[in-house]
Design a protein around this nucleic acid. Sequence first.
RNA 1: GCGCCCGUAGCUCAGCUGGAUAGAGUACUUGGCUACGAACCAAGGGGUCAGGGGUUCGAAUCCCUUCGGGCGCACCA
Length: 576
Amino acid sequence: MLNIKSHLSQLLVEALNVVAPDALGTSIELTRPKQESHGDFSCNIAMQLAKPLQRKPREVAKDIVDALPHSPWVEKTEIAGAGFINFFLSSASKQRVVNAILQTGEAYGHAASNGKRMQVEFVSANPTGPLHVGHGRGAAFGASLANVLAAVGYQVAREYYVNDAGRQMDILALSTWLRYLEFNGINVPFPPNAYQGDYVRDMAKIIQDHHGDRYIHEPWRVLDGAPSVEEDADGHLDQLIANAKRLLSEDYAYIHNLALTEQLGDCRNDLTEFGVVFDRWFSEKSLFDSALVERALALLEQNGHLYVQDGATWFRSTQYGDEKDRVVKRENGQFTYFASDIAYHLNKFERGFDELINVWGADHHGYIARVKGALQAMGLDPDKLTIALVQFAVLYRGGEKVSMSTRSGEFVTLRELRSEVGNDAARFFYVLRKSDQHLDFDLDLAKSQSSDNPVYYIQYAHARCCSVLAKWGGAPAMLASVADLAKLAIPYELTLLKRLNDYPETVEMAARELAPHLIAYYLKELAADFHSYYNGEQFLVEDESTRLARLALVLATRQTLKNGLALLGVSAPEKM
RNA sequence: GCGCCCGUAGCUCAGCUGGAUAGAGUACUUGGCUACGAACCAAGGGGUCAGGGGUUCGAAUCCCUUCGGGCGCACCA
């Protein structure tokens, strides 16, 4: 398929070759003018060359236009403003897109494989409780981004990093056990910094149902040696964890594992229902089991990037622009989260991906320097890793900010949101704005206004297309061969054709900028063009050739809407 | 205090590597169903692009600065 933009670009190169051979290195920019009167494409090359050539921009423009080879796709060119060269395309060049879409179908807008493997790691929330609406944004963004990257030709691996090895999991296991004791009338005060959510009680209930009083221990043993909560809340918790491990012995692993399995399973189901699926769930614990953490640190050690101070082992991240050096192994001998993350990234590189993307909450931005520093210190190329930051969604209920903390159990879950506004609206709403922009999520508004959500505007356009084609009753597959596209010449149609032409480039840009919201905005505009057309013209007209041409355009519009919605994980219903 | 992100219509937000008269949605005011689905369309009012300076043919966009918000600055994850 001939790409109009690159075609124009080629014409300009040939013209430049005549007018200013020395300036061939100048990049040629072709943009879509905002104003229709400025043509279909506009080029500012003459203004860029004016200075080096020491000539007036409009004169340069005139020479370039005179030197442009003739093209059947270009109807006319003109020089405008300060020296813009505007291209007006022939109708025929715009009409061709319909056939292109009908021939490629679901692949329209998708590029062929570029042979590169890319990994997108996202969500990666601690499996210590249900996903909340903040995670939902990372999930929707990451999933859409992965789809967009796959559409432009990458072989994309979607991965979830499971923090199953840290202190947080121990706290969850402890919390579960304490609730279990509570069920059995054992009175141990539940620490305020343990997990408060009801799901912890649910897990305690499961243990109770399956194992009765097997895990009961006396309160004084549970609390043995623990400082008071007021005195040292974290110390209190850590001592209780230590006591749990000692008292329960191997049974501790059972509770720990049950909590992990339950929460991870819940998380996976939740995401699957949300249309977010992963190729791999990567266990942090496996990094320790395979001694990769030790190996990664040994690598840093041998390159001289580690040192011991105050009993802890530090990574000299300040050498790579970090604010301060970071501990990788604590005084108590335990590795930090950072240590396993270094190992994890080493593992990613060893798997041979060409590019890596980590989707992180924006509160982790201070973490970027040290991770990239560690990569560099291990002799790996930090530029292969891109961090896409997603601002957390801030919830508002009744005009007031809802504070969210998994620990306190006060949060709105993703599941809750999905059931309130639906998967489609939630997916769309999440990616409707730039990812690095704060998202003010007014719950009342999201719930009450669900029918005002722009996603319905787009889905409605799709349903209308389906409805028209159904009313016509013919076989859509034949339209590609029988429609005379030259009949598509009124402004509504030319506008729509132009929009359809823009789709592949929009996908490319969304991939390049890691910005799936561009797809959402494109779809809104495509739907708007279609709705205007629908209201302004009758499709099922008497004249057969006009009718078939219009139906072909409707079919092409439907296909493009569907393709775009698919990238966002939003359904394209035939009826609403 | 230091670092990163942000400030665009009453509200929520777009604005691509600098381009021509800054755009949507919502809200408000009008008009359009005996036509393929009115969950739609058409028209209108609404702006010192936070303030100031700079770079240049040209700045919402790039640089500096002030003000105002958010986030981060652990031997937590």
